[in-house]
């Protein structure tokens, strides 16, 4: 029995890991794009983007998952995600990426706006181009500023992946709970906590190491 449970939990954890990795891969760049949109001088871009960020940050992720997966079928009469688990997984990833990109965009914005104006001006008077200033001067300072808040969001994401179960994406909590219904076993559900702890522990270590790497300078 123990082996069956572990095999099932491992499978669920793999799904959790997939959600985690794909969300980060999508949300890092999308967040930067949203950040440029919400700080744009162009009002027709700025305000719609800010509206979207407000909606996404102002509603629960669980609700967003339900709307994104069931919305097309319910409102447009066309379930464009298709039947079966791959459609559910895709919808979950899309919801997670949008949600996390909006949070990331605000972190990026804080990081970029936190760099003193003098840094840009110092680059300008030295004849540097806008992109040289961004990549050679600003970028690393932004990275250093955003690592702590980004770390918090990343750890939150580890746990948020469990929300994908509301649209029947079989992540690790689902796998654990399945044993309650099928075999009357409760411990597999509680045991999933060990996976989460190990995973977030490793991430905390990695983030700490990154932070240490950037300790050579101060902003």
């Amino acid at each position: 029995m123990f082996q069956t449970v572990m095999a099932s939990l491992n499978e669920g954890f793999l799904k959790t890991l997939e959600i985690f990795v794909l969300t980060l891969l999508g949300a890092f760049p999308l967040g930067l794009i949203i950040c440029f949109g919400s700080t744009s001088q162009f009002r027709l871009l700025k305000y719609p983007v800010k509206l979207i960020v407000w909606c996404v940050r102002g509603t629960p992720l669980m609700l967003q998952l339900l709307i994104i997966y069931y919305g097309p079928g319910l409102i447009l009469g066309n379930n464009w995600w298709g039947n079966g688990s791959s459609g559910r997984f895709t919808a979950a990833i899309v919801a997670f990426i949008i949600n996390y990109a909006c949070y990331f965009s605000e972190i990026y914005r804080g990081g970029i706006e936190g760099v003193p104006k003098g840094q840009y001006e110092a680059g300008q008077v030295l004849g540097m181009t806008k992109s040289q200033i961004f990549f050679k001067v600003i970028f690393l300072q932004v990275i250093k500023r955003i690592i702590p808040p980004m770390g918090n969001e990343i750890i939150t994401l580890v746990k948020d992946t469990s929300l994908a179960r509301v649209i029947a994406v079989y992540e690790i909590i689902w796998s654990g709970q399945a044993f309650i219904k099928s075999s009357g076993l409760i411990w597999p559900l509680f045991f999933t906590g060990v996976y989460y702890l190990l995973f977030s522990g490793i991430l905390t270590l990695l983030l700490g190491r990154l932070e240490k790497k950037l300790e050579f300078f101060r902003v």
Binding site: Y70, G71, P72, N83
Partner: peptide, 9 residues
């Protein structure tokens, strides 16, 4: 019910 109405099921 959402699953049925959205044609997921």
């Amino acid at each position: 019910i959402m699953e049925l109405d959205s044609k997921a099921l």
